[in-house]
Each structure stands twice: as C-alpha cells, then as structure tokens.
Design a protein around this nucleic acid. Structure first.
Lengths: 174, 174
DNA sequence: AAGGTCACTTTCTTGAAGAAAGTTATAGGA
DNA sequence: TCCTATAACTTTCTTCAAGAAAGTGACCTT
C-alpha cells in the first residue's frame, strides 16, 4: 500500500509492516473490524472518515490481505461488509500495546476515562498487548473485553472472519 | 502532530497514539534513534527520507516529546542530534511487535533474512515485543540485540537519552 | 582561500486528504 | 406505481503535505 514511498520490499520487517500499516486509518479500521463493526456506514460513523478515503482504504486493505468481504443479512436482503483476516487479527498485540502507550503518554481529554483491557480467561486486566500480564497466556481477540467507560460499553472482540450485525446506528465516534 | 485530522483529544487511546505515531516515518525514526543513530545525516541515509520531511518530522517529534536534542562531539566541535525520550523508549514493544508481525505477514524480499530479537539477559530470542517469550522478563532497549543478517550486524539498542557517535557513514538503508 | 561536512531551508511539482454531492441497487410503504 | 430510505459506493473540487533538488550558513581542515 504505497502512499508515497513503496516499502514492500524493504529489508527491515518493521518498514515492511509500515508499508501496509503506516497510514493512520488502517489500524483504526482493524480496531473496529475486530469489534465486529465491519459495515461501511458503521466504520464511517465510528471513524469520522470521508467516504472516498474509506472506500480507497478498504479496497487497499482487502488487496493487502488485511480484510475480507463477507455477507451479512439486512432484513430480507444480503449486504456486504468487511471482516478481519488472520493477519489483521494478529495485529491485536500492536493495537493493545498502542492503547497502553496512549494511556501513559498522551493527555486524557475531557470526558475521557481509562480503557481497561480485560482477559476474560483469567478475569484480570492486562497491561501488556501480546500476553496477559496477569496470567501469562497469549491474548486472543475472542478472549478480550475492552471496557470503554466513555461509551458505557464492554466490548468483546471477535476473531478473524466475523462481522456482527449489532447496533444498527447511533454509535458516537470512538 | 495532526497530519490532516487532529486526534489529540480523541477518547480512544489508540486514536490518540496514532495522532502522534500515525505518520509512516515516525516509528522508523524512533527505531533508528533507539539504535543510537540520531544524527540528521545518519537518519537521512538510513531512512531515505527527504531533508525537508525529516526536518519537519524531527521538529514535530521534539514538540510531541518523543525526541530530545542532545549534543555530540564532532572532532573538536559540538554538534546537535536527537535522542529518544522515555516516551519513545517505551515504544519498543510496539516496534518489536511490528517486526514480528512483518516477518509473519509480509513477503521477505530478495536478499532479506530473519531478524532475530535477542534478549541478552537470558540469551534467548523473543517472539513477543513486550516481555521475553523465553524468560518472561519485561524487555528494555539496553537489553535487546537485533540481529540483522542482511547488514551483518548485531545492534544493541540504547536507552532513552543516548546518541552514539559511531559509524561515521556508509550504512545502507535499513 | 578553497573545499568539506552537517543541519538545515527554500522552491517547485505531484498527488492524496477531506468535504460535499451524485450514483446505483434494493426494499418497504402510501 | 411512485416515493422515500438505506447502504455502499464514486465523482468532483480544493487544499495541503510529500518528495526531489537546489540553496544557505556555520564551522572546520588543508
């Protein structure tokens, strides 16, 4: 996904990762998709992204094997949305590490609150992204609950391939 | 560091992190600075970034408290370079997780090779970014060695505040 | 005095971001 | 049947940063 430079054949694996992930929207889209919010309009609402940019990003992310198109029912018809691939699901450690870092090193805005990352296998909060700081186990999306006090929500993440049909609308930006 | 959108007061900590880190260059600059390569021309060479963009990024990163300006000796005079802050040093888990992900999910280019992340406290390779997958200890920069076979180098990382004066030139892009 | 190094700044072109409006397809209701 | 609504886009337009190349100034060595 070259924005300006093409880093897909860089020798350093970090640089190759950033060739795909270095756009500010990509990780946020994966975050939402790992919450099951993979519908176009749900993403647009949650992200506050323009239609044109979202459309481009989604296409590029399918191309980069981060997303797959999946069907979901809308009343009597079938619509198309997006779900995470295994590759995207394995970015959970990165996302969680970014969440931990953001809480430590960015200023909490008015109305904000601590987002706890709960490993429901052991029931404890983890302060690490890859493995649980409480029980040591490797963290998988479907075993994680993100507690977001500012939206009064406890969100259980979903594994690769899943698109939930829930909450038809009216979710504030996240 | 708003590129287009300003996310500094987002409620989600991931989004606040990406307000600072969502530019593709920022994490690569931190990677280099954690190798002690914090001189302007060393960064330019290693990154293949244009002077203008590097200068802007460095200024913004100092502003965002990711870098500090430090002195280093150049013969008989003193010059200025950049070193990581504590905030930047605590991005090590993110960088290492990105390295692991990149090795799993991006195609190794011709001439590439596996980059091993060695925790020299226990002597083993870790497959996790935050804590050592072999001994469980939290990973600190000064205890990590990154083995880069494509440059025949074993690079020991440096803690916050350090700028090494080493290798005057001729390092290939990384 | 001339040349080199380092850390920038300036100038210019190209192309993506973002905002707003338009498009297509399908469904449900009057 | 026509009207409206919804979802998933695409199109158009303006603005602004990326990237490339060249220029600047401070300081040093020869």
């Amino acid at each position: 996904m070259p924005l300006r430079s093409d880093w897909s054949d860089a020798l350093c694996p970090i640089r190759r990762s950033l060739d795909v992930l270095g756009d500010p929207w990509v990780l946020l889209i994966i975050r939402d998709v790992l919450h099951g919010r993979g519908r176009f309009d749900a993403l647009r609402e949650s992200l506050g992204i323009s239609d044109a940019v979202l459309s481009r990003r989604l296409r590029a992310m399918v191309e980069a094997d981060l997303l797959v198109r999946v069907d979901y029912p809308d009343g009597s018809r079938t619509r198309q949305g997006y779900a995470a691939t295994e590759a995207a699901a394995e970015l959970l450690p990165v996302l969680q590490q970014l969440a931990v870092w953001g809480e430590r090193h960015t200023a909490m805005p008015a109305g904000g609150a601590h987002m706890a990352l709960i490993h429901d296998t052991c029931g404890n909060e983890t302060t690490q992204g890859g493995s649980c700081s409480a029980c040591g186990e490797v963290l998988l999306p479907e075993r994680m609950i993100w507690v977001k006090p500012w939206k009064k929500a406890r969100d259980r993440l979903v594994p690769a391939g899943v698109l939930t049909m829930g909450e038809t609308s009216a979710a504030p930006p996240d």
